[in-house]
Design a protein around this nucleic acid. Sequence first.
DNA 1: CAGCATCCTGCGCGATACTG
DNA 2: CAGTATCGCGCAGGATGCTG
Lengths: 140, 140
Amino acid sequence: MKPIAQAEGAVDYQDLAFDVFSRHCPSRGTLEHVTGRWGALTLGALHEGSFRFNELRRRVDGVSEKMLSQTLHALERDGLVHREAQPTNPPRVDYELTPLGRAVAERLMALIHFVEGRMDEVLEARASYDAKRSTLDGRA
Amino acid sequence: MKPIAQAEGAVDYQDLAFDVFSRHCPSRGTLEHVTGRWGALTLGALHEGSFRFNELRRRVDGVSEKMLSQTLHALERDGLVHREAQPTNPPRVDYELTPLGRAVAERLMALIHFVEGRMDEVLEARASYDAKRSTLDGRA
DNA sequence: CAGCATCCTGCGCGATACTG
DNA sequence: CAGTATCGCGCAGGATGCTG
């Protein structure tokens, strides 16, 4: 049993600004939970409603049980996700965004959708970048 | 010499939507470049202007030379960062965002700043979460 | 169904050294 | 200064098995 992600050294945070750019800053950790591979997709999924564990697992294509569990814990600990467990049998647990989580997800989705919408440009850039590279160091 | 990040299997992307939630989607890769640990911070730094390699290295606290190089290549390939090299001696290379990169960074910064601004709430949530946990399984 | 514990592997990434 | 090449460790994270 481990405290999830409590490590990262003992620093007195009281008197330092929450600047992501500096190494030992707690906001950096949270930002990584939010933007991390699974964190981002999980928040994205939850942005559309409340879901049960395995529903989420299906929506976030490719996530393992372990990683989803881990991700949800981190987000819950950060106060972005609320976990509602009913002690029935079989058990039913629902996850949903907290108000803070919703606000974060909002911004995140703006980013995600924007990137999705511009993928053609990205793909084009990639193609021309690769073309340039291959003509440069293509000589055997 | 490797093609940066060209792997991820051969799928015909023409006829599938750019849905981040599905496994083999190119937007997922780009999103990870953007939101990844160093990608996000690099875009953030570049959002404030044009910088040289070692300037960036100093602004993004903790990034290794290797990772910064790698990150910049990925972002350049995705068409988000422009690399301006002058063949002088000593060499001078400037990095700056492309218009597309600026648009992405805009959304990203909205997210980052929001998270930074709410860190007190997050920290509070963490504290109460941890408190609850430790009283539950604290028994030796 | 919801999930924790364990084992094991790959590769992310940091450290170091070398080049133009 | 602005990078590449190489090595090696650590941990992210997948697979598997068990519990309530």
